[in-house]
Design a protein around this nucleic acid. Structure first.
Lengths: 216, 216
DNA sequence: ATCGCTTCTATTGTATACAATTCTGTCTGG
DNA sequence: CCAGACAGAATTGTATACAATAGAAGCGAT
């Protein structure tokens, strides 16, 4: 994807995630072209990608709208993500080298710095967290997994969850990462997988709890 | 995807799977347009889909070629597929109704018919097998899973495996399906998941064995 | 002869015009 | 007042021409 298609992708994506877009909202290719400042051709390209990530949905007959996930779908998303990220951690544990373990340590240090302040820097936390998980995925060396997982990590959900975290919960995340690093050091794939599973499933329940209270 | 894009998809797909295409072979959008008899625009569309299914790969700089999976990638594919199909079976076991269980029985009866002949009809076996697994996936009622799984069930691999099956192995497949149906009847998700796991992993080892002997 | 530069060619990316489809609102007959 | 059909508008799909970019070939200097 070159310049135009790539910028279209990014603009549309941030419009959907951080802009004034609302779930279920209808869109047209032309509007999106306007937003991203390119013609419809690269827009269609970007839209295909976003459809695959299931951020956009093509309604009954080809009309585009912004995805609106049911509670069951979000549960399922977390479950699948837990399965696949645990699997990624297991693979990574068998393949990772000391250099990459060091990198993970560095990233997690930055993550700790971000949260150990009078007011935790959630953006920096999310950034470091993302890098951490991405590096593990890279160490798993599975093209397939790398293609599948992004479709399960929906930024709106991740964001919303992180912004609800208490200090203790942020610390727990950092501790999970420490333990993952320990498991990688020991090249213990079972351990790594188990830590990753509980790491994700804790996030899941945090998310559910806040979603529930928001709906009351 | 309407007419042109859809026909392009199908033509390219069958060219890749059953045509004179070879793994690693380079392709150009124009050649594909020629093959499918439409212009490059819908071809690009189809190519995107096939890239997502990882049947086509975009090499370093945007050049297209036919995917060529390493042994490790195929292992990984089976492992992921086993995880996700087992999960689908578990979900289905909790949601399936008697009508759909009946349908599964019918499909599996057709499958048995196909293999219980002097010369088993592998095409009919594959067809019924596919319907069986598709119906389970539908009963799992998870849009996400439905999007993810197809990227893991590569037809070349499935085909190659099925054509190597002995009569006993074909029968074992049918028996697995019978047991899945029993698990669904009992709404026992653990049972269903376990049967599915072993069903897929057996296929995996059959595939590996024949692949290994073919390489000697 | 080889390395690096330049030019040319092949291939992919983008814009635009037009065709096909689907949606919306209005009108007519009952 | 409602159902169904029709006309018009909006939206998506396709083809084509052209632009940008990557790859290959040729050329000369050392």
């Amino acid at each position: 994807m070159s310049r135009a298609a790539e910028t279209a992708y990014e603009k549309i994506r941030s419009f959907v995630l951080y802009g004034e877009a609302r779930p279920g909202m209808q869109l047209t290719e032309e509007k999106l072209a306007e937003i991203s400042g390119v013609s419809r051709t690269p827009v269609r390209d970007a839209v295909r990608r976003l459809e695959n990530e299931m951020l956009l949905v093509r309604s009954a007959s080809k009309r585009l709208s912004i995805a609106d996930w049911s509670e069951d779908e979000i549960d399922e998303m977390f479950t699948l993500r837990a399965m696949l990220e645990a699997h990624a951690a297991e693979r990574a544990a068998r393949r990772i080298g000391t250099a990459d373990v060091e990198k993970l340590r560095d990233i997690n240090d930055r993550l700790k710095q971000a949260i150990r302040q009078s007011r935790p820097d959630i953006a920096a936390f999310l950034q470091a967290n993302r890098e951490f998980h991405d590096l593990i995925l890279a160490c798993a060396k599975s093209p397939r997994l790398s293609k599948l997982l992004p479709a399960l990590i929906e930024q709106p959900v991740v964001h919303r969850t992180a912004h609800q975290y208490s200090n203790a919960e942020l610390e727990q995340s950092a501790k999970d990462h420490d333990e993952l690093i320990a498991a990688f050091d020991a090249q213990d794939s079972h351990w790594a997988g188990a830590v990753m599973t509980s790491h994700i499933r804790r996030a899941f329940h945090k998310f559910s709890a806040t979603a529930r209270s928001a709906n009351d």
